[in-house]
């Protein structure tokens, strides 16, 4: 195991949305800070830094993870997906983005990247979800602007087990 020295910076590299990236981090640097300020992927937002709000959610090796609770050094060699990687290669929205757009499922958009990444990790499972399951899955994401209805409807459009009016 590599022993990291307090205060010194070491190189961290991982795959971000399919592309190799690297940068330098102190042992204590949070993954959220590393993504935003070292890599420049500022689409991932930080709203509490104590693991409650879900704004910083990214997908690490297929699992939704709070990047404010993970150290950059722990991301070494991992496969990370963030909001910047959702759109198709021709820049068109993916299904979740499209559903959010059509459903007015965002207002300020600050919580949105975390919510989309939480849902995106469900999308990978390939299965369909009931409304209570979607609500449960989103129970770690706070949104202050919407009343969640639009978000849940948009999620059901893509992941749901029924057609929503």
């Amino acid at each position: 195991m590599k022993i990291l020295k307090d205060g010194s910076k070491t190189q961290v590299s991982f795959t971000l949305n399919g592309t190799e990236v690297d940068g330098y981090a102190e042992p204590r640097t949070l993954l959220s800070d590393f993504l935003r300020h070292e890599i420049g992927a500022s689409g991932t937002h930080v709203a509490c830094e104590h693991g409650v709000c879900g704004a910083c959610t990214v997908v690490v090796d297929g699992k939704a993870v709070r990047s404010c609770l993970m150290l950059a050094a722990q991301a070494e060699g991992k496969e990370i997906r963030t909001i910047e990687g959702l759109a198709a290669s021709d820049d068109s929205f993916n299904k979740l983005q499209d559903a959010f757009h059509k459903r007015f499922a965002l207002q300020c958009g600050f919580c949105t990247p975390g919510i989309l990444m939480t849902l995106s990790s469900l999308q990978d499972s390939g299965r369909r979800y009931t409304e209570p399951e979607i609500r449960e899955a989103l129970s770690g994401n706070i949104c202050r602007c919407t009343g969640y209805r639009e978000i849940v409807d948009a999620a059901l459009d893509v992941l749901g087990d029924r057609v929503v009016a």
């Binding site: 689409g43 937002h45 909001i83 910047e84 959702l86 983005q97 757009h101 958009g109 990247p113």
Partner: peptide, 8 residues
């Protein structure tokens, strides 16, 4: 916003 390109 949906592309993570907001400038906050």
């Amino acid at each position: 916003l949906l592309r993570g390109r907001g400038k906050f």
